[in-house]
């Protein structure tokens, strides 16, 4: 036991072990400062761009698909359904390959970043549409009937009465999908987009610092996901309907 510790420390003893550890960390500071972190910041910037552009577009497209599936005419329903079957059924990796390597052979060249972005939006919207469809269908029929009885068109009833309620119900699912998006955005490296994970991979193999690079990248993701989770929680609190179970009321209950 003591032998092994002694063997680690150059001048023997516990103090020596920590001395060594500190020395090795200090000796790595230039690597972190000058190589790893700058590369990761660049990668983070690309990841953020992908996520920040995909999330709203994937959400809106998902909503459009969901509303089409629930309230559209027969052909519109059918098209929306086809969209979901295709983009939910196709593995994201395969989808990215098709967009990046396949489309150029029919004359459509999207480039790395665009391929990743388009792939993510298609995938994200297909999944979101399923959460939103379930939520739309869970809203009681009477809500739309009441809206229509007041003279609202079907469109107005859906927009002002059903959708706002459905969004609240879909929020946990859509949020979950957002967290997934942050993580699967690392797949962009297969179409040569150097985002957070890709950046770490390059540094790791170049400097043979696998543990450091991926530990750092893990912490980056953890921080992003934690911030996102806090944001989502705030959103849920903000839009909770007072009086509905689990919701925090703005107005206290009467009597």
């Amino acid at each position: 036991m003591t032998d092994s510790i002694n063997a680690t420390g150059a001048d023997g003893g516990l103090g020596g072990f920590f001395q060594n550890l500190t020395d090795s960390i200090i000796s790595q500071i230039p690597f972190w400062q000058d190589v790893l972190l700058p590369a990761l910041w660049d990668g983070l910037w690309v990841t953020m761009q992908l996520v920040v552009m995909t999330a709203p577009l994937g959400f809106l497209l998902g909503l459009l698909i969901a509303v089409s599936r629930v309230y559209g005419s027969a052909p519109v329903k059918w098209l929306a359904q086809l969209y979901v079957i295709f983009f939910r059924g196709c593995p994201l990796l395969v989808l990215l390959f098709i967009l990046y390597f396949g489309l150029p052979s029919v004359g459509i060249v999207l480039g790395s970043f665009m391929s990743a972005l388009v792939g993510f939006i298609l995938c994200n919207s297909a999944y979101n549409s399923e959460y939103l469809r379930g939520a739309l269908q869970s809203i009681k029929r009477g809500q739309l009937l009441a809206a229509r009885s007041l003279g609202m068109t079907k469109m107005q009833g859906v927009m002002y009465v059903v959708v706002p309620q459905a969004l609240r119900r879909a929020l946990p699912g859509v949020s979950n999908e957002f967290i997934y998006l942050i993580k699967y955005s690392s797949l962009a490296y297969v179409v040569a987009v150097i985002e957070l994970t890709g950046a770490a991979k390059i540094i790791a193999s170049k400097y043979f610092m696998y543990f450091e690079a991926f530990a750092a990248v893990g912490i980056f993701y953890l921080v992003i996901v934690t911030i996102a989770t806090i944001g989502i929680h705030r959103l849920e609190m903000k839009y909770a309907i007072p009086g509905v179970s689990g919701a925090v009321g703005k107005v206290s209950k009467g009597h």
Binding site: K140, G142, L145, A146, S149, G151, P164, Q165, R168
Partner: peptide, 17 residues
């Protein structure tokens, strides 16, 4: 026309949100 015919439902159907 529907505006001229107010309707009240058994289950109220108030907009929950």
């Amino acid at each position: 026309y529907r505006q001229k015919m107010g309707m009240v439902f058994q289950n109220f159907n108030l907009f929950d949100h």
